[in-house]
Design a protein around this nucleic acid. Structure first.
Lengths: 272, 272
DNA sequence: CTCCTATTTTGCATATAGTGGGACATTCTT
DNA sequence: AAGAATGTCCCACTATATGCAAAATAGGAG
């Protein structure tokens, strides 16, 4: 297991308490407050915020009101507590619509494609599948050979899916596979839940997934997860036609891992 | 066509230029600047921002830097222009993870369910389908009769899908239906592209969709679109078993439309 | 290549504008 | 009903964001 997965919970833009000199401190405080609304603590009162950030209640109250005025928070009038507001939905849609993910990650994929010479794939989970959202073409792999944007791969077949779903909490993964038979695509597809779970365990132990023709008969794939803070977020993979097996796949593990980490860093607004 | 669809582009939290007295103006400026990054203008320079908001370049520069420092924007060093940052992705995920949509919309659905006595459904588009994300149970409709959360309905069958897909730009809708045969679910399912497109046109003209047993044989559905700013965002519908047809469906059109509008208002941070 | 223009960045003095203290109001507890 | 905790409002003060001006950098034209 490569080293990069240890420090996923480092300091990032959410938790760093310092306001760099010269920047409007009021704005920075407001943004830090906004980022405090997460899954673990989705609701905050004025006093809680003031304590958590060492501010006067008066100040906290005004900052919360300012965030609320633009829809970043909403206030429940009966409980007087604040929650995340519709501007969060709006920003998330803008992120998608302008293809911001691509602007951040594509350069990393392109480097990988140049390094390996093979096609690179970036895929996001989508209802018990992985959906390719970014691709980079390597010199030895014409895109027609293999992946296109917006293709779907089932959760139980192929390294791309395995690298992601292996790191989902067991309860969530289980829910995906009960009541649905595991379709067989090739002779290598695991159609037995026990065997599949053992494969996932191996992927977790190694930190990467390698499959040969589990979904597409002639294709070998090497994949690693991409993390967003503590959670698996996406999957990054190299794919190549099996007959060109020459290169030893483990040669690319390090490159994939370091690319995955760079993307993670960018997605949490650390490293460039 | 009911009246509510006229004023979709009213003033909302994004465009209102006034900072209410007592609120920290710096914060409000920063948030307004952040909201200026949308699909139409995804990139801004310091001067552009300063002109658009009537600020000194110096001020604009510091506010942009503050937003960047917390990951809400990213700066392209070569062009010195700013784009939306990964904090937008983060906030969007928080919005989803804490079920903020439900907190905003569920009360409206519950009222509708009480008013109509039937089951109410709120569905979001999901790769050529509609996925139910919120339901409310009416006294005459046990949930078992009809909808559950997380069910999928194909884009070409049933009022729930029609109300949404009718308002997609033609080019986008077309892409969903080419190369895929339209599956037939019942005798009423439209499997011909021309006929389907005429149905969409009718939905647009009326502002609502009504179908009987196009997907589930025994079910009648009345649905309206929910808009987010200018774009269709979701679908809101009443469903009931056809044998209880007694009530005239058009009685519920107004209630559905006004509920849809209330949800829209909340999603753009106007009305309560 | 050099000059010119447009844009961005930095430093600093000023006064605007955010802050914290505290009083008042409200809600929840016991 | 009394007390505790939380939220809101108002005001004086000075911390802090601002505008100015100059320097630095980039881009375009000749």
């Amino acid at each position: 297991m490569s080293h990069y997965m240890q420090n996923r919970s480092m300091l990032d833009f959410r938790t760093d308490p310092s306001t760099p000199a010269g920047l409007p401190q009021t704005v920075d405080r407001a943004l830090r407050i906004l980022l405090a609304f997460d899954r673990e603590s989705p609701e905050w009162g004025v006093t809680e915020i003031s304590r958590a950030f060492g501010l006067h209640t008066s100040t906290a109250q005004r900052l919360l009101a300012a965030l609320t005025h633009r829809g970043f928070l909403v206030r429940d009038d009966s409980s007087r507590r604040y929650r995340i507001g519709p501007a969060a939905l709006y920003l998330g849609r803008v992120w998608d619509q302008v293809g911001a993910l691509g602007l951040l990650a594509q350069p990393v994929l392109d480097e990988l494609a140049a390094f390996t010479g093979q096609n690179i794939l970036f895929a996001l989970p989508d209802s018990a599948h992985m959906r390719t959202v970014l691709v980079a073409e390597g010199e030895h792999g014409r895109l027609r050979d293999y992946p296109m944007v917006n293709e779907l791969y089932p959760a139980h077949a192929g390294a791309t899916s395995k690298a992601y779903y292996a790191f989902l909490p067991f309860a969530q993964r289980k829910r995906l596979f009960i009541d649905r038979p595991l379709a067989r695509f090739t002779a290598n597809t695991a159609t037995d839940l026990g065997r599949l779970e053992r494969q996932f365990a191996q992927v977790r132990a190694r930190g990467w997934a390698y499959t040969e023709g589990e979904y597409d008969e002639g294709v070998a794939t090497l994949a690693v997860p991409v993390f967003l803070r503590e959670e698996p977020y996406a999957s990054l993979s190299v794919g190549w036609p099996k007959e060109r097996l020459g290169e030893h796949p483990s040669d690319w593990v390090d490159a994939l891992c370091s690319a995955s980490e760079r993307i993670s860093l960018r997605l949490t607004h650390r490293g460039r």
